[in-house]
Design a protein around this nucleic acid. Sequence first.
DNA 1: TGATTTGACTTTCATATCGCAATCTATATA
DNA 2: TATATAGATTGCGATATGAAAGTCAAATCA
Lengths: 146, 146
Amino acid sequence: MQSKLPSSGTRSSCPVNAAVEVIGDQWTLLILRDMLLQERCRFSEFRGSEESVATNILATRLKHLATHGLIEKFKDPEDGRGALYFPTERALDFIPVLVATMAWSNTHQPETTKYAPLMAAYRSDPHGTAEGLKERARQFRKKVLP
Amino acid sequence: MQSKLPSSGTRSSCPVNAAVEVIGDQWTLLILRDMLLQERCRFSEFRGSEESVATNILATRLKHLATHGLIEKFKDPEDGRGALYFPTERALDFIPVLVATMAWSNTHQPETTKYAPLMAAYRSDPHGTAEGLKERARQFRKKVLP
DNA sequence: TGATTTGACTTTCATATCGCAATCTATATA
DNA sequence: TATATAGATTGCGATATGAAAGTCAAATCA
């Protein structure tokens, strides 16, 4: 039996609760980060993230993200074994939230030193920075997918 | 022994990871919502939220939020039994992230019908709406605390 | 072409966390 | 003094996590 996220049933019609049910765990946001900001799209690439997610958890979370319409799975056109995961438009729309979250962390915890250039760009132009990342993610998909 | 949040140790210096370690569970964001948007500050008020958090979980999360500098605990000046929880400035700075998250949910899941007026206000003036909520939270604290 | 390796999972299992119910403590009220 | 209330803590079965090992099909090597 495969592992599930806690409380998979809808608890309320509140948008905060809806978000919690999608991204409210220890790994989903990190996977979204790698996909949206780092141009990662393979199982092995997500697995290689600094925080070292276990393979069973990663598989569960990718399925979870697909179920909730944040990622789509494709066959790697250049390797029959490979799978490629790409963000949907819904996930791309999450970029402003993700980057705002990062900026919040970075403001209050200066020890969060990763993504310093991105944080600087975001502070001088939040909207433009988010849109830039969105466009970059779209281009990356075009480059890799047939 | 009291229950803990998963992975209490710092896994990386990434701001996304830092956020996950603070808000990456099924309840913390809901408590922040009630505190920042609903003027709730008592244990029983948080407990009464629609999603029905258990008392042990709520106690754990309130402690967790205090540890991470998002809330402060006070004695109720009008009832020796009571405790009052209020957001720190760090928590108030989270309001824009929280409201952006809600807007994202609301855009892609129209069944999230709660907070419709807030969502409408946010769409027409994101920054002003967030600042308004921040000021409201500050005023509420002044009103209730000595 | 058979052997080996690789990518993407799935299974196993010990440990940790969740969540319900019951209990506890301090203060307030009748 | 008795009871009610606010804010928790404890016990315990159910569920989720995470490290390691196993599976399997497709690719690469000999």
